[in-house]
């Protein structure tokens, strides 16, 4: 299904675990440095209300005066587990894109705030880079360095799967529980 900006609470609450979604609109990258900065009380350089944050350290180069994304796969999300939930609540972030899933703290905030976790396909750097059609801006590049900067990505039909929804469900928990049962039977 398609999900287009603005990413309102209503649209996000309608999503369920297992939904395959193609995102179109403006999203922001943010990884370790950005999350820590915001958690420590830093002012966001962009308005994060009803936004989607992408855990990604892209390879971006300037060609003919324009930013071009060369590779943009997701990075492991669990590193942001201490920060993600409180930031979702504080800034009304409606979605996070990453890989590997997140923990119980983030899941609880997803329910409370009305937010979801989107799983992108890890390693698919080229397919995902192709979905970034424009880079209108970049923030904190001086302070954080290029991969850690907050990049504005205009994406079209960016493919993800909802693996944690705003109703307390997590595909990661379900797959883990089911595989644990199977493992115990085998051992």
């Amino acid at each position: 299904m398609l999900l287009e900006a603005p990413f309102t609470e209503k649209k996000i609450r309608a999503l369920k675990v297992g939904d395959r979604v193609e995102i179109t609109g403006l999203i922001y990258t943010g990884r370790d440095a950005a999350h820590k900065y915001l958690h420590d009380g830093g002012t966001p350089p962009v308005d994060l209300t009803d936004s989607i944050v992408y855990h990604c350290g892209p390879v971006v180069v300037k060609e003919k005066g324009k930013w071009v994304v060369k590779a943009a796969g997701p990075t492991t999300s669990i590193r942001e587990e201490p920060y993600q939930g409180p930031l979702m609540e504080k800034f009304k972030i409606r979605g996070v894109i990453g890989k590997g899933g997140m923990g119980p703290k983030t899941l609880a905030y997803c329910k409370k705030v009305g937010a979801v976790y989107f799983h992108a396909i890890g390693g698919a750097a080229q397919v995902l880079a192709k979905c970034v059609v424009d880079v209108p801006g970049v923030h904190m590049a001086e302070e954080f360095g290029s991969p850690e900067a907050i990049w504005e990505f205009q994406v079209v039909r960016f493919p993800v799967v909802v693996t944690m929804d705003s109703h307390g469900r997590s595909l990661h928990d379900a797959v883990q529980a089911q595989s644990e049962k199977k493992l115990k039977a085998l051992l």
């Binding site: 297992g18 395959r20 590779a71 796969g73 990075t75 698919a124 750097a125 080229q126 397919v127 493919p159």
Partner: peptide
């Protein structure tokens, strides 16, 4: 299934990286 979908994206990515001679994964 979501698993098949993931491998579809993976296969597209492999073809694309080869065609444009860019890294398969940014890491």
């Amino acid at each position: 299934s979501s698993g098949k979908y993931a491998l579809e994206v993976v296969r597209d990515n492999i073809d694309m990286a080869r065609r444009i001679s860019q890294p398969i994964c940014q890491d």
